[in-house]
Design a protein around this nucleic acid. Structure first.
Lengths: 119, 119
DNA sequence: AAACAATATCGTAATATTGCAATGAACAAA
DNA sequence: TTTGTTCATTGCAATATTACGATATTGTTT
């Protein structure tokens, strides 16, 4: 089908997947990298930085914007894209929970258990 | 095209994007959720937990495995999937760097600057 | 107003993803 | 060895993604 059956999953799972998915492309990682690395957040600078055509970059920016990760502000003729502080922190929180649960659990699944049993 | 131009990006950007992309689906979040929540990591239990047909779950497991996030161990008739400790920590490190950079930078992009300038 | 600059949108082609029924392969149990 | 169980793979249909040329839009400059 190609269409995700989102209604079967929890809201958290869908939200998190949406945020994560928005970052799941090297071009979009590169955009965030750029925003983290420089003072500039002018669309034109991002287009120049990336090895992709302007419409393609515009599309990637749109996806990041749709996910809420960045927001665009008109600044005269140009548009300035910045990371959305609220969403970014929410995202960070989600992921922290994820990794913390793992650390607390100690990953003693079958394979590990088998190894121990065999000793 | 539909084919990502990976060769234009850095190895880190591609690696990170691959890991992130593998998690960018609610079913795959649900799988990891399940592995974090329970002692079981038997494929059949995961299939029962998820609201998707067995072949679909198998495919999602395969993608997580391809990305390296989980690994499967044969255990008699069943297969036990567990989170790969090394890849998981590498992933965590990547993301920590990401979020740390943000925290250090304080996100003073155009919009924020404009607000301050206008005060 | 006319010309330019910066972005977005449209249209389209190529490819990827999602989902499942049907089937196959491997092992376990009878 | 037949039967059942567990999981992977195949094949396919529906949809989504990626990429870009052409074009529209909006604001700026002259």
């Amino acid at each position: 089908m190609g269409a995700t059956k989102t209604h079967h999953f929890t809201e958290r799972q869908n939200e998190l997947a949406t945020l994560i998915k928005a970052l799941g492309h090297p071009a979009r990682i590169a955009i965030i990298d750029y925003l983290l690395k420089t003072e500039s957040c002018i669309c034109g600078d991002i287009v120049n930085e990336l090895p992709l055509a302007q419409p393609t970059v515009s599309q990637h920016l749109k996806e990041l914007k749709n996910a809420g990760i960045i927001k665009g502000n008109v600044e005269g003729n140009a548009i300035c894209y910045c990371i959305d502080d609220d969403v970014w922190h929410k995202f960070k929180g989600h992921l922290n929970g994820f990794f913390q649960t793992y650390d607390l659990k100690k990953n003693n699944c079958c394979f590990t258990n088998v190894k121990h049993k065999d000793l």
